[in-house]
Simulated assay, not measured.
Amino acid sequence: MLAVRTLLICLGLLLVSGCAYRAEEAPVGSWQAQKQQLAALQDWQLAARLGIITPEERGSLSLFWRQHSDDYRLNLTNVVGKRVFDLSRRNGRIELVDGEGRRHTATNAQELVYRLTGWNLPVEQLADWIKGLPGEADTVIFDADGRPAQVQSHGWQLSYQGYTQIDQLWLPSRLELSHDTTTLKLAVSRWELNP
């Protein structure tokens, strides 16, 4: 009787420890399992359509983004292919070349874009958000596959509306961001990792 009781206790402990282990292990291919890979992904580029909606205007632009570690180049063009602006960060220096070819520099990309265009673009946070990383978010709601679906961060509301799998990683394909009276809609047409 004592042997049976000891065996049952051991089996119970194995089941409990087994459940705890499985709870910590994310399913293979899930966002939770790939979170560290996404955070380590420093070299990527994408092409997308960017919709910008403010009380004053409504427009659709083509966006090209090339990220290399902390440096980036973000190029926006209008529907006829004319440059709206080219924003870059190299070795901590932020520069924006406007549609007329004039160069502007600043220490804060978001403030520079706002000053020159009136658009509120969270450039620094967007580098993580665009990969599906909430960063230091206030709240995150995950979808049925464990990927971020709704995020509140830095006063922004993010809604991840689609994902695509690229090189075994789940990356956002559609994202909507809103802050006060600004709404941004991003539809990614092409991802390239480690280009």
Rank of each mutant, 00 (worst) to 15 (best):
C10G: 11
W119N: 03
T183S: 15
P122L: 10
L15H: 08
S153M: 11
L121C: 00
F85H: 03
D43P: 05
V79R: 13
P148V: 09
R58V: 13
Y72A: 12
F64S: 15
L184I: 00
S88P: 09
W170I: 11
N75L: 15
K185S: 14
Q150Y: 09
P55E: 01
I141V: 14
R147N: 12
G162F: 04
L175W: 01
I53E: 07
I166M: 10
D128I: 04
L50A: 07
E176S: 10
D143W: 03
L158H: 05
T117D: 07
S178Q: 15
P134E: 11
K35D: 00
S30G: 04
Y163R: 06
L121S: 03
A187P: 02
L177R: 08
K185C: 03
Y160M: 01
L50M: 13
C19S: 10
H104Y: 12
D98R: 02
A23P: 05
T183V: 08
S153R: 06
N108Y: 08
T164A: 02
W31M: 11
I53K: 14
R49M: 00
S17P: 08
G12W: 06
R115L: 11
S153C: 09
L158V: 08
A23N: 09
S159H: 15
I52P: 01
L38N: 02
A137C: 04
L169P: 07
D145N: 04
